[in-house]
Nucleic acid binder design. Structure first.
Lengths: 309, 309
DNA sequence: CTGTTAGCGCTTTCAA
DNA sequence: TTGAAAGCGCTAACAG
């Protein structure tokens, strides 16, 4: 069949509006050309900025991304996971490492490649494409120590079931300990990832006795909520209190004062996640990747003032 | 087979980790139990706050939500649309009404129910679950007129291919015209939906000659970016300039000053969208719905001051 | 290179 | 109520 005729046939197919039947194709070929992504929530620009590029890279190779969110609920996550497997995804993207053991049994039995993102551990046996949350949060704490802070508080995500949040807290504690500073339990406030939670946590922290001169936040959302609340309370940032965030979302560079934060490589992570899975699917060698994070110093941090506020 | 034995069988199935094969089921039953959602972007909390509840309601009836984003690109949207149809979704959720004619040919031929969201038109023949963008933006403009403003500017989303943005602008123009005020072309700035775009548009507006006393924004993102920029420029909100947003995202109620905005009913819209599609799929009567929007007055608006700034 | 055929794992229909 | 058989729309393997 020559090119000309081939083209006419393709045109005819388009004219008639023929759309292939994915289920039949999947059944016959044992490949669905779908990749599943199981995320904690969609209600956060963080994940959006990862999923867009991920979809793009996967789409370039003919794969469709199927997104599911667990709403930070284990039950929901489990049923969404089963949904993805039932729908026959060829590969799966998971966030963090704390997941039901059964997932891996199923994945292994069905030979479905998977990858953990948003996290990193040296000794991990399961495939990772992510960054080290612990050393990332150390970067922020270290910077604050270097410019002279000694009294700290941290606004953290809910630790339960969230290894990223746990690692971030651990990093802060470790580096403070190296400087003989103990981050006490009452100085660590756990909250769901929301602006308003950052605001109320900040108020709690600053109205307690012996308030800190620096507040380390486990998310830009917390940090920005804190900045808004500081403004309402008449607390000047950074003159009275320094604040750091985590992620470097658009809000961090837009807010006034702009936010000192940790840039997490979401776009690059999406690309490498796609490549990892695509390689596995093509039986090529696929290697996990540790990505670098970066401290972005902006206006929300400064040396502590001498006067206690 | 009695209940006891039935239960034992189910347990055994669970033990063995059997997961049904969706493609085979879909092929045999001509139902995939998947619903597609085609969105402009995932990189905006707006859509996240809709997709979460949508997934929840669909999931309650055993449906999986397959999310695709077009990144505001027609080509990408088309290929994602074909992807969804190929993957055999049983129903589809579209945002706005400006879509390729061919979508409807395919949808009709394949008898796939669909619904348009985020928009409303009285005379529409295609099913809608949404709100009227035009009357929504009128609410904001009307309020500003009522408290005495006469000089306006608008920061709008890119109009091309976006009927929601067009309607919002139209609403503002109409109500101003009723008060004999012409919103001139140079007072309307079109930008992609980003905080930083709101900031730079605000700067452009305020450094132009004869700056307005009120800036109407087609998105909370623009409005918050404008507030941040005002802060940097030493312009006081609302004393010097009033600013209104659109959507009532979490940022609107958190930012300082808090933002006067239009609340769009995203959660309710998600629920009704799910119900519409589920009813169509169950051959029950399904009716489209017009949802109400609401003006939320907060701190970012006040009567114009007498002194020109 | 092209045409034919078996069969993917289910649901559905029909027979027992 | 249960079992057997057909077949969904494709792909893959093989024969021509």
């Amino acid at each position: 069949v020559r090119a000309a005729r081939r083209e006419r046939i393709r045109d005819a197919i388009n004219e008639l509006g023929y759309v292939p039947h994915g289920a039949a194709r999947a059944l016959a070929s044992r490949k669905s050309r779908m990749i599943g992504a199981l995320f904690p929530t969609l209600d956060n620009v963080l994940f959006g900025s990862f999923l867009g590029p991920l979809q793009q890279h996967l789409g370039a190779q003919g794969y469709t991304l199927v997104i599911a969110s667990s709403e930070y609920d284990h039950e929901v996550e489990y049923s969404q996971f089963i949904n993805l497997v039932t729908n026959g995804v060829d590969g799966i993207v998971l966030v963090g490492m704390e997941h039901n053991e059964r997932y891996y049994e199923i994945l292994n039995r069905k030979q479905i490649p998977y990858v953990h993102t948003w996290t990193w551990k040296e000794e991990s046996k399961s495939p990772l494409v992510g960054f080290c949350n612990k050393s990332a949060s150390k970067l922020a704490a270290k910077y604050l120590l270097d410019i002279g802070h000694t009294r700290f508080a941290m606004i953290s995500g809910i630790l339960e079931g969230n290894d990223r949040a746990k690692e971030r807290l651990k990093g802060v504690k470790e580096i403070l300990a190296e400087h003989n500073i103990v981050l006490q339990d009452h100085a660590v406030i756990q909250r769901p990832f929301e602006l308003s939670q950052g605001a109320s946590a900040f108020r709690d922290i600053m109205t307690g006795k012996n308030p800190p001169t620096a507040v380390i936040c486990g998310s830009d959302l917390f940090a920005c909520g804190a900045i808004f609340e500081a403004n309402r309370m008449g607390i000047r940032i950074p003159e009275d209190v320094s604040i750091t965030g985590f992620d470097d979302t658009e809000l961090a560079s837009s807010i006034s004062p702009t936010l000192t934060t940790i840039r997490t490589p979401r776009v690059e992570m999406a690309e490498l996640t796609a490549h990892y899975l695509l390689n596995r699917l093509n039986n090529a060698k696929a290697s996990q990747k540790k990505l670098d994070v970066e401290l972005i110093v902006r206006e929300s941090t400064a040396p502590p003032s001498n006067r206690a506020i």
